[in-house]
Nucleic acid binder design. Sequence first.
DNA 1: TTTTGAAGTCTCTCC
DNA 2: GACTTCAAAA
Length: 666
Amino acid sequence: MPLNPAQAAAAAHGDGPLLIIAGAGTGKTRTLIYRVAHLIEHGARPERILLLTFTRRASQEMLSRAERLVGGSSRSVHGGTFHATSHRLLRRYGEAAGIPKDFSIMDQGDSEDLMQLSRAQLGYAKGAKRFPKKETLQYVYSRHVNTGLEMRDIIRDEYPQFTDYIDDFRRIYGDYTRRKHDRNLVDYDDLLLFWAGMLEEAPALADRIAALYDHVLVDEYQDTNALQARILRGMCRTHSNITVVGDDAQSIYSFRGANFRNILDFPKQFSGTTIVPLEQNYRSTPDILDVTNELIARAQERFTKHLWTERAVGEKPWLVAARDEQQQTTFVVDRILELHEEGMNLRDMAVLFRAGYMSADLEIELTNRKIPFEKWGGIKFLETAHVKDVLAFLRILENPRDEVSWYRILQLLPGIGETTARAAIDAMAALAWESGAFGRYNPPPRARAAHAALVALLDTLRTSESADAGSVSAEIAGVRSMYDAILKERYDRPEPRLADLDQLQVIAAGYPDREAFLSALALEPPQATQDLVGDKSRSEDDCLVLSTAHSAKGKEWDAVFVIWALDGWFPSSRSLSDPEQLEEERRLMYVAMTRARDHLAVIYPLNSYGSRMGSDYFVAQLSRFIDAGVREKMERVTLAAPAAEAAPEVQLPAVDLRALLRGRFG
DNA sequence: TTTTGAAGTCTCTCC
DNA sequence: GACTTCAAAA
């Protein structure tokens, strides 16, 4: 199928800034690939094209599709996320900017742990008011770096209860920054910050880096933040061959500092921008499009576009009222089996929800009924304590100054707690972190045995490394000779955790060395557990997808089920008090619903039992986004008793009675 | 100083 | 339902 006129115009655009406003399902990826092909055919050298995408998945898909179109030459196009690209540049040019080559990358959890060290060390205000926890400290810091907003303003707007602590925030951040520097650690925010720094503060370096590429293309531009916009300006300082593709209606990453005004303001930032809107939708039936257009029409500020399609009329989207969670689950599973009977592959169906934990009941039922599924998003393998523990051992081998990892490992050992761990770390710092420093540390008596065992283990690992037999997988086996015992001691049911570690060894076998393994894990964490096993046959299986709405972006399925469409769930209760966040929730719902090609069902269980917020039972209401105008374009399916069905017609404000009580008596 | 238990807090989304 | 924090016991 040839490109339509708008797509063709975008693909064949000459030099100069180009903004493609691409609605959901309008062939955005295809257009971008054709543009890459066009550039190569017209003499651009593929290795001088930089293609920035949001996820590793997107980048791989794009490069492989480009290869099919123009052949092997496209393989040398540089592609990746902002963070991964910065990582590559820092390893190559970082030394000239004062970043030693062998730095370690910290993921968000690591940053939080390091923040905790600073927090504890500086002796935060005890007693009085509650002091922000490490996650909050990390969030405010990250937000400050990524958005450029003043810390004072962030705290005032989002954490007014902590305004008195602003100086403590500053002190902790100062300490945190110093620690990162001393220990040669780089966090996610630094990756972007240093990239921008090289472009803005070091003219000679900036010239070299910017000169690497003649064309820069950015996917999902609505999800970039102010810092990333600065990077792009820096990369395009000598030319203005920048193409960005995005849809302001699908901006869903403001919690990471993204601001959809970035895309609205693009023409102001790059003068002479050509704007090409893509409005013909190739994905969904007109019935689905009707509903999603209606849903997004209520959005406050946006590039107005109206998606249309030439696809034949299909089935109206279903709005399903279920009595409770069980009925919701049963409905979804039954309907999936029905479609499967009719010949639809499981892999062409997906169940979407607001947050990872909302699929728990469904996962149990799918397992019981032996329906294979794959879950995207939610709690990640790499964030589980035992996996992080094992990785911490590898990290101190890689970077002996990695304080966070030392701290973590030391506290695993019997007889060593917070205080002893810190003393050991201080002792090592005093010896300038030389490799034998830990061996020379003299622990208190009760920690002697554990200390000796760890010294022996590290010695073994270090020597086998020099004898080159040290593949990463073998190193993990070595670590486990000590760690498995600790794990069995600590957990009642260690089996699933041990199995996770087996899996980790399998993954590690796929990497040439430790550094590559650790960096890859930090930057490109696998989306689903199945991705972890390099087992092709598994992923070829016909497998249903369960996904958070966020992780579903950019994908599409024949049939999509959106579950838990309740006020307080979707939209999330945390967003209800802030109009801007509520708008983002609306866009997120839009993203979820626009994933559907032929069948769409939105389900809401009216009654919930459970321990959420401490209440035992409550009646919930249909998501406010499915308002009368939207409902009218949907097919009502009622599974529940009539009384329950009537409830959503009246829009009552959500009230948390317990919060009222806390406010009065707390 | 470490460990353990109880009370209290807040729940997501991802590079 | 998981994690943090604080206090008391070992």
